[in-house]
Computed example of a mutant assay.
Amino acid sequence: MKRIIPLIFVTLLFACKNHTETKRVKGNLNYATTAIKSGQISVTANLTATIKTQELQADLQLSNPGSTTLTISEIEIATTEGLRTIPKTGTASMILKPGENKAVLLNFQPLNELRENQLTGRNGYLKGVYNLLITYKTEEKESGSSADNSPAQTYKSPTIMSLPAILAPSEYKAYLKKYQINATSYSFNTKSDFTAKQKAYLTTLKQIKQPPFVFVSAQEIAISGVNFRLRSYCENDTLNAEIFIVNHSDFSLKINQEKLDIRYPGEPVSARSNALVKVEKISGSRKDPYEIEKGDRVLIRLKKPFKNKDDNAVLLFNKAFTLNNQIALFKNNIELVKVNLP
């Protein structure tokens, strides 16, 4: 009997360890779900949110009550507006034999607001309602279709099951009241004369061999093969901006980071000294992070105090990027328009 007790003890420890890998995780926000069962698939789910990381954790119990093999190809989280997000971690595809059960733990970084993501790079505040989307298909057998008249296996078309997860309205209201902050972003002013003036200026530059090309949209500028994308947000009187640059052209650019700035009307020039600018070369030549050669991808981050009461601001571009012999790529700076975030 003395030999049996340690064995039982070890077995219990092992069983407990396996159990903790699929146990339900409680987060800051806990969504209510209802189990769904059909003749082909049975699903129970627990969805929680961690506010600090803006992540969702889905603890799923999946089973196959049918008589044929069940293949789950995808599990996603979706907003009621239709924005879908695949898991950040966890296995979302599997095969379940008849009668088989599996526990799955998935983590999501959900895209909650598309417009905010385009403007700022952030995903927006958590939603009060999500849908867990499970894409699956089952086998079906067709008799007499093989050479020996044995049943041949084929698959039905994929089916998507939607399992709603709902946060109590009072809990969601309390979450927004505590964490939601009024914030703004900035877009390029597409109605200015910047495009016409810049195109005329490019015709005077001998360093640019290809025909002059200028295109400006709300968040991007394309200049003869060099693309600039702006993302920004301003909250608590602090501006955070990112400029992502990709060089498809045949010429190189030099970054003069001390000349790059975003200013609002009436802002003192001395405010530039409080700005923090970081340059990171994402890919391409590693010789000089401030040299943008063909094929290089560069990210510039700017952070500074920003108490802008006006609806406009200016992105100082005209001396920030230069060609050979210190020739500026931009003739003028470009005006920015304030955008209120949801």
Rank of each mutant, 00 (worst) to 15 (best):
P6Y: 01
T11S: 07
F14G: 02
T20I: 14
E21Y: 03
K23V: 13
R24Q: 10
V25S: 06
A32F: 05
S38W: 06
S42W: 04
N46C: 07
N46S: 12
L47G: 01
D59S: 11
S63R: 02
S63M: 04
G66Y: 08
S67R: 06
S67F: 04
I72S: 01
I72G: 04
E81S: 13
R84L: 13
G90T: 09
T91W: 01
E100P: 08
A103G: 09
L105Q: 08
Q109M: 09
L111F: 09
N112E: 09
E116L: 12
Q118R: 11
Q118P: 05
R122Q: 14
R122H: 14
K137V: 09
T138G: 04
K141C: 00
E142N: 08
S143V: 11
S145Y: 07
S145L: 14
S150W: 02
T154M: 12
T154E: 07
Y155K: 02
Y155I: 05
K156S: 13
S162E: 15
P164A: 06
A165E: 12
K173C: 03
K173N: 11
A174S: 14
Y179Q: 06
Y186G: 02
F188N: 02
K191Y: 11
D193V: 09
A200C: 01
T204L: 07
K209Q: 10
P211R: 00
P211Q: 03
P211S: 06
F213K: 08
V214F: 06
A218M: 10
E220V: 10
V226G: 01
L230Q: 11
R231W: 00
S232F: 09
E235C: 05
E242P: 10
I245T: 10
H248G: 13
N256C: 03
Q257D: 14
Q257L: 13
E258W: 04
L260W: 05
G266V: 04
V269K: 09
R272M: 11
R272E: 08
V277G: 03
V279K: 01
K281F: 05
K281E: 07
S283L: 08
E293M: 14
R297K: 15
V298A: 03
K303T: 15
N308I: 14
K309C: 00
D311K: 06
V314T: 15
L316I: 14
L316H: 04
K319P: 06
K319Q: 15
A320P: 05
T322Y: 01
Q326E: 15
I327G: 00
L329S: 08
L329F: 07
F330D: 05
K331Y: 12
L336I: 12
L336D: 09
L341S: 02
L341H: 04
